[in-house]
C-alpha cells in the first residue's frame, strides 16, 4: 500500500480578484522509503499542494476537496487534533527559506526540544539529549555548544540542517521538503542533498521533494510529478521521465535548461508566460505556449493517460503516439534545441 495516496486534490483561494484554483485535480502516490520529486515553474501549485496535505493553508481563504490518504486515513477529513498529532511526528515538512523558517527569539535547542515535547512524553533532559543527537546526525560541528545558539548565529546552510534535524527528530515516515536547497549555493546544496539521502537510508523515511530544478530531481528522486498550471501534466519514474519525456511542456523544460553535459548554441525556449490561475486557458492549459497545439487542444482538456505503454508513465497531451515517439527520438540524440 502506498504511504501517501493523493486523489483528485483541489484547493481554491478566495481573493479580492476572484477565485484562484491553486491546485486543480492533483493525484499522485508516495511509496514508503522512496522519494517523489515534484517539479514545475513557480506558481504551478507545488507548495500549495503540500501545504494542503499538511492542513497548513489559511482556513479562512482556502477551500479544499479530494483525498490525501496517509496510511489509509484521509488527512483532509481527519479531526484537527488527530492531524496535529501526525504533523511533526509522522509527517514533517521543511521549507524553502532557512533564514526565516526558525523563530529568531528562541535558541535552536529550545525549538528542537519543543518538537520533541509536542509528540513524546519525555523528560527535559531526554528531549535535550535527543536534540543533541539529531544535531550531530545532521552534521552541525560543535553541537554541544551550538545547541544554545540563536538562529542568526548560523549560516543559511547550517540553518537548513537545523530545519532537517527538527523535521527528523521524531522519526517521521514522510518528509515533505519544499525547495529546501533553492536558497543555497551549489556546494551547500550538494551537502544538503547528500545529507537528506544519508538520513533517508538511516531512518527509512519517504521524501516528497519539491523543486524547480530538474537537476535536483535527477539527483535524488525515484518518481517524478511535473506540474503546470495547478495540474499534474506528467508522472513517471525518474528514469522514464528523463529517458522518454512524453509531452511538449516537459520537452520545453528539459530543452530550456543550459547543461554542463551538452553544448547548444541556443536554448529551446518556451514562448510566453505561465497561465493565470484566476482565469486558466480552456482545454489543455499549455496550449497557448505549445508549438504542437491542434484545434482539439483549445477545446478539450486531455486526460492524464499512459503515454508510452508503461503504466507508471502518464501524461496529459493530445499528441498521437507516433509524433511523440519521433520527438523523443530527437531528444535522445541530443537535439534539445530543435524541439520547438
Amino acid at each position: 500500500m502506498a504511504l501517501l495516496d493523493v486523489r483528485d486534490l483541489h484547493t481554491t483561494f478566495r481573493t479580492d480578484d476572484g477565485l484562484v484554483k491553486a491546485v486543480d485535480g492533483v493525484s499522485f502516490t508516495v511509496e514508503p522509503g522512496k522519494t517523489l520529486g515534484i517539479v514545475g515553474e513557480s506558481g504551478s501549485g507545488k507548495s500549495v499542494t503540500c501545504l494542503t496535505i499538511m492542513g497548513l493553508n489559511d482556513r479562512r481563504s482556502a477551500s479544499t476537496s479530494g483525498q490525501a490518504l496517509f496510511k489509509g486515513a484521509d488527512l483532509l477529513a481527519m479531526p484537527k487534533n488527530e492531524l496535529r498529532a501526525l504533523r511533526g511526528n509522522e509527517i514533517s515538512m521543511i521549507f524553502q527559506d532557512p533564514m526565516t523558517s526558525l523563530n529568531p527569539v528562541h535558541t535552536i535547542g529550545r525549538q528542537l526540544v519543543e518538537a520533541v515535547h509536542l509528540h513524546q512524553d519525555v523528560s527535559r533532559s531526554s528531549a535535550r539529549s535527543q536534540s543533541l543527537d539529531v544535531l550531530k546526525a545532521v552534521g552541525i560541528p560543535n553541537a554541544e555548544r551550538r545547541i544554545d545558539d540563536y538562529p542568526h548565529q548560523f549560516s543559511g546552510g547550517m540553518r537548513q540542517r537545523v530545519m532537517i534535524a527538527m523535521a527528523l527528530i521524531n522519526h517521521p515516515d514522510l518528509l515533505i521538503a519544499d525547495e529546501p536547497t533553492t536558497a543555497l549555493d551549489v556546494t551547500t546544496q550538494a551537502q544538503i542533498l547528500k545529507l537528506m539521502d544519508t538520513l533517508q537510508k538511516e531512518y527509512g523515511s519517504a521524501i516528497v521533494m519539491i523543486t524547480h530544478d530538474l537537476g535536483v530531481v535527477a539527483e535524488i528522486a525515484d518518481d517524478v510529478v511535473v506540474m503546470y498550471g495547478a495540474q499534474v501534466v506528467e508522472r513517471a519514474t525518474a528514469e522514464e521521465l528523463f529517458a522518454r519525456p512524453s509531452m511538449p511542456y516537459t520537452w520545453g523544460l528539459l530543452g530550456s535548461l543550459p547543461r554542463i553535459d551538452h553544448d547548444v548554441e541556443r536554448l529551446a525556449q518556451i514562448p510566453g508566460t505561465p497561465p493565470s490561475l484566476l482565469n486558466p486557458p480552456s482545454g489543455c492549459r499549455f496550449h497557448p505556449r505549445c508549438t504542437y497545439a491542434m484545434s482539439i487542444c483549445q477545446s478539450e482538456q486531455p486526460p492524464l493517460a499512459s503515454a508510452t505503454g508503461s503504466e507508471t508513465h502518464l501524461s496529459r497531451c493530445h499528441l498521437d503516439q507516433a509524433t511523440r515517439l519521433t520527438e523523443i527520438k530527437k531528444l535522445e540524440s541530443g537535439h534539445f534545441a530543435e524541439v520547438t
Binding site: A190, K194, A218, E239, L254, L257, I260
Partner: peptide, 26 residues
C-alpha cells in the same frame, strides 16, 4: 573541481554514477 562536481545534472544515470567532492563547512 568541487563546484563542478556539485552541479546537479538532469540525467539520473550520470547524476548517480558521478563522484561528488563535498566541501566541508561554510
Amino acid at each position: 573541481g568541487a563546484l563542478l562536481s556539485a552541479v546537479p545534472v538532469p540525467n539520473p544515470e550520470l547524476a548517480r554514477a558521478r563522484q561528488q567532492i563535498l566541501l566541508e563547512g561554510d
